[in-house]
Simulated scan of single mutants.
Amino acid sequence: MLYADGPSTHREIRISAGAARVWEVLADVGAMAGWSPELVEVEWQDGATYPVPGARCTGRPPPTRCRAPGTSGTTNTP
């Protein structure tokens, strides 16, 4: 399948909590690192502490092991 074919996915889940509680959990960007092995840390930028229009956050992935041609591999830490 090609990207031009418009591949997509769909998933639904029922959550037994009110909208305010769901938003509270999703808005906690610091907790995202505990949900995904692809994140080590997430932090708000520019003094933001909560998701509002224009707020930004940055995530840091775990160190990766990569192999450059002709080497035994190096450790990168973003």
Rank of each mutant, 00 (worst) to 15 (best):
M1H: 09
M1V: 15
M1E: 08
M1D: 07
M1Q: 09
M1C: 09
L2W: 11
Y3I: 13
Y3R: 14
Y3N: 10
Y3P: 15
A4W: 08
D5E: 14
G6C: 05
P7E: 03
S8Y: 13
S8M: 09
S8A: 14
T9W: 10
H10K: 11
R11T: 11
R11E: 09
E12R: 14
I13D: 10
R14L: 15
I15W: 07
I15D: 01
S16N: 12
A17E: 11
A17P: 11
G18R: 05
G18D: 07
A20Q: 08
A20P: 06
A20D: 07
R21N: 13
V22G: 00
W23Y: 09
W23S: 06
E24G: 04
E24F: 00
V25S: 01
V25H: 03
V25T: 05
V25E: 00
V25I: 10
L26M: 10
L26S: 04
L26W: 05
A27T: 02
A27P: 03
V29A: 05
V29M: 00
V29H: 01
G30F: 03
A31M: 03
A31T: 02
A31N: 00
A31S: 02
A31L: 02
A31D: 01
A33F: 01
A33T: 00
A33K: 02
G34L: 02
W35F: 00
W35V: 05
W35N: 03
S36K: 03
S36N: 12
P37T: 06
E38A: 15
L39D: 04
V40M: 13
V40R: 14
V40W: 08
V40I: 13
V42Y: 01
W44S: 00
W44M: 03
Q45W: 04
Q45K: 11
Q45P: 05
D46C: 06
D46W: 03
G47R: 01
G47N: 05
A48S: 08
A48N: 04
A48M: 07
A48F: 10
T49G: 11
T49L: 14
Y50T: 14
Y50S: 14
P51E: 04
V52T: 12
P53T: 10
P53K: 08
A55E: 02
C57F: 13
T58N: 06
T58G: 13
T58Y: 07
T58V: 15
G59K: 06
G59W: 12
P61T: 13
P61W: 09
P61M: 09
P62I: 06
P63K: 04
P63D: 05
T64Q: 11
T64Y: 11
T64F: 10
T64C: 13
R65E: 07
R65S: 11
C66W: 08
C66V: 15
A68K: 10
P69T: 09
P69G: 14
P69A: 10
G70K: 11
G70S: 08
T71Y: 06
T71S: 12
S72L: 12
G73C: 01
G73F: 00
T74P: 06
T75E: 05
N76W: 14
T77K: 03
T77E: 07
T77F: 03
